[in-house]
Design a protein around this nucleic acid. Structure first.
Length: 572
DNA sequence: GCCGTTTTCGGCCCGACTGTTTTCAGTCG
């Protein structure tokens, strides 16, 4: 079993925590954290890069030393430096870093004064009232720690974007009622349309004497006020979501939007650009000495860096600054570019609505076409179609299309990829369809090589047009299965198969980086809602969000094609 | 420990809030 990037990153992070607690050089600590971020977010497995003989020290924030450590980790699973550090500093201390308000210095103080090594030790000490007596702590610190421990639940999950919207929208509506409020905007990963959101960053401009902060902390969903100042407050809502509110002068609104939209890496890169030009960039503007030379709009900030405006979805420091400098930013796809939807279910299998209702809903959304892609027979839990029932559905579609001219229903099926890579229906049935969607729905735990071969074999079938939800992951629920996506994409490019970006908010499968990889390899993408009801068709916008994060343009996406061109593409 | 369009050495993003201080360190984003 190859070592996951995530495991490597976790080890580097733990090492960074322990080194920081020991009081190591803070820049060395940061180097490990930066490396952890690079490895965790890298679209290809370190093990594969090594297999291909690539030089890991070419990766950002990875130098010779860390390249060697990753090599060793992949080869043997060992990180000797971490073992060594754990000999002298209890490894559970890194867990304490997750408690809000406790950082390296204070953990070290607790460890030295009270021999606190674990969360349980901390709990007991807090209950006994020992913490208040440690130098640098007091009554309030002890009380805060107690409160945090009650809520502490280990690894905190990030919130799906769709849920974050449900939390953010009423809050924004409420905030708009604050006296003296002028502008309001949500920043952070929410604005970058990341698939999950850690906390909400809300930005406001207001009149001098406004009561925005009081209004904010009075919100009925507020469970706890973490901090409250004139320009910045943090609360927890009852749902557990952290919300940061910042108030900035209007003249700084653009700079603040830029700053608080992030990503962190993008901001750091922009700041460095600024420094090179002799400017200082912060949330109040771009400064030359004491003079503010930009900041009212985001565009003005980029302009001072000699860059065009960069869309929030691209701000991940994954090459967007270089692309901007060269004038090669993608013209990102928009919701209006979509002409149809190539993955939808009906009552015939596990959908909730009839073919007609689905078709009407698609027409109402201005689509030219909608593909009905019910499940195939192997998926018995979903009442998958056998040949006979499929035939019946095709007749119904013919009849429907005969009566309509504002939308065309495409005949298709989401056919199961069997364990050996064969498809769940014979070619004689598949060739009757406008196109075929293939998907893995069982045997998620095959070894990587077998899983990859299974999917490659399915792509080999001349009747396969699109591979649906390619990784099988469910956000916060199920990891992607083990497979070699790059190989799949290369094969798809070779054979002219498209790959789906499934727009279900809990799938968003492909990931943003995988979208970019597909694009770079020349693979076309189908952004599809996998709708199980008429209202699910609205998930398209989440697919668009993800596609934009993956640098996709209209020309990369098959369902931006008009019907005739799409059908031509599917001709075999 | 990483990195370089003035650098292979000497930098490394920076401002707000809190609590425990009596002028600021620690933490966070």
């Amino acid at each position: 079993m190859p070592v996951h990037n995530r495991e490597i990153a976790d080890k580097f992070d733990r090492l960074a925590d322990l080194l920081e607690i020991e009081g190591a050089n803070p820049f060395r600590v940061r180097a490990y954290r930066n490396a952890a971020r690079t490895v965790r977010g890298y679209p290809r497995a370190m093990a594969d890069l090594i297999d291909d003989g690539e030089d890991l020290s070419e990766l950002p924030d990875i130098g010779d030393d860390l390249a060697e450590k990753i090599d060793k980790l992949v080869e043997s699973g060992d990180l000797p430096l971490l073992d060594e550090v754990e000999q002298r500093t209890p490894k559970a201390l890194s867990e304490l870093m997750k408690i809000e308000g406790l950082g390296a210095k204070r953990i070290k103080a607790l460890h030295e004064a009270l021999e606190i090594d674990t969360i349980d030790d901390l709990k007991e000490a807090a209950e006994r009232g020992d913490i208040r007596n440690v130098e640098g702590f007091g009554d309030k610190s002890e009380e805060k720690i107690k409160q945090r421990l009650v809520k502490y639940a280990g690894d905190e999950q990030r919130t799906q974007l769709i849920e974050a919207e449900e939390i953010a929208k009423p809050l924004v509506e409420y905030l708009k009622k604050a006296k003296g409020l002028k502008d309001i905007a949500i920043a952070g990963s929410y604005r970058r349309r990341k698939e999950t959101v850690g906390d909400l960053d809300i930005l406001i401009t207001a009149k001098q004497d406004a009561d925005v902060m009081d209004h904010f902390t009075d919100y009925e969903e507020v469970d706890e006020i973490v901090s409250k100042g004139k320009t910045r407050s943090t609360v927890y809502l009852r749902c557990g979501m952290q919300v940061d509110l910042r108030v900035v002068p209007q003249v700084s609104f653009g700079a603040a939007q830029h700053y608080f939209t992030g990503s962190r890496d993008h901001n750091i890169a922009v700041r460095k650009l600024g420094i090179k030009k002799g400017y200082k960039v912060n949330e109040y503007g771009v400064f030359k000495g004491d003079e503010r030379i930009a900041g009212k709009t985001e565009k003005s900030v980029y302009k001072k860096m000699d860059l065009p405006y960069i869309e929030p979805e691209l701000r991940e420091n994954r090459g967007e600054l270089e692309a901007a400098r060269k004038g090669e930013l993608p013209k990102l796809i928009e919701l209006d570019d979509i002409r149809g939807n190539l993955h939808a279910h009906t009552k015939a299998t596990d959908g909730h609505d009839s073919l007609k209702k689905m078709a009407r809903a698609a027409a109402e959304r201005g689509y030219e076409y909608l593909a009905i892609t019910d499940h195939s027979r192997r998926l018995a839990v979903a009442n998958g179609l056998d040949e006979k029932r499929l035939r019946k559905q095709l007749d119904a579609i013919d009849k429907f299309n005969g009566d309509q001219d504002d939308i065309r229903i495409l005949k298709s099926i989401e056919v199961d990829i069997l364990e050996d890579g064969k498809l769940d229906l014979p070619d004689s049935a598949l060739k009757e369809l406008d196109f075929v969607l293939c998907a893995v729905h069982h045997k998620f735990d095959l070894p990587r090589k077998k899983q990859t071969e299974r999917i490659l074999r399915a792509l080999d079938n001349r009747h396969c047009h699109i591979l649906a939800h390619p990784s099988g992951r469910l956000i916060n629920e199920r990891e992607a299965y083990e497979f070699d996506l790059e190989k799949i994409l290369e094969e798809a490019a070779d054979r002219g198969r498209a790959i789906e970006l499934n727009a279900q908010p809990d799938r968003l499968d492909l990931t943003d980086e995988s979208c970019k990889m597909a694009k770079d390899l020349g693979v076309k993408i189908s952004i599809a809602t996998d709708a199980h009801s008429a209202t699910d068709l609205d998930y398209m916008r989440f697919g668009i969000d993800q596609a934009r994060r993956g640098w996709l343009e209209k020309k990369d996406v098959v369902n931006c094609l008009p019907l005739e061109k799409l059908l031509k593409l599917f001709e075999r």
